[in-house]
Amino acid sequence: MTTRLYNFNPGPAALPLEVLEEAKETTVQYGGRGISIMEMSHRSKPVEQLAAVTEQLLLELMGLQQDRYRALFMGGGASAQFAMLPLNFLAEGLAADYILSGSFSEKALQEAQFIGSTRKAASTKDEQWQRTPDVSSLQVKADTAYVHMTTNNTIEGSRFNVFPETGDVPLIADMTSDLLGRDIDYRRFSMIYAGAQKNIGPAGITAVIIRKELLERGSKHIPLIWRYATYANNDSLYNTPPVHALYLTNLVLQWTKRQGGVKQLEAVNRAKAALLYDAIDQSGGFYQGIIAKADRSDMNITWRLADKQLERLFVQESEQYGFEGLAGHRSVGGIRASAYNAVPVEACQALADFMTDFQLRHG
Rank of each mutant, 00 (worst) to 15 (best):
L5F: 08
A14V: 03
L15K: 03
E39T: 04
E39G: 12
M40L: 13
Q56T: 07
M62Q: 06
G63S: 05
A71C: 07
G77P: 02
L85C: 05
L85E: 06
P86W: 09
N88M: 10
A91K: 15
A91L: 14
G102P: 01
F104K: 11
E106Y: 11
S123V: 12
S123N: 12
K125D: 12
D126F: 12
W129A: 07
T132R: 13
T144L: 00
A145L: 06
V147T: 12
N152T: 13
N153M: 15
R159V: 09
V162G: 11
F163Y: 13
R188F: 09
S190F: 05
N199G: 11
I209D: 00
L214I: 13
L224H: 02
R227Q: 14
Y228L: 10
A229G: 15
Y231V: 00
N234E: 08
S236F: 01
T240K: 09
P242I: 03
P242V: 07
H244L: 11
Y247T: 06
L248T: 09
N250I: 01
L251D: 01
V252W: 05
G260K: 10
V268S: 13
A273F: 00
A273L: 03
Y277F: 14
I290W: 10
I290N: 03
I291H: 08
R296Q: 12
I301F: 01
L313S: 09
V315N: 02
E317K: 13
S318R: 01
V332S: 11
I335P: 00
S338R: 00
Q349V: 11
L351E: 10
F358R: 07
L360Y: 03
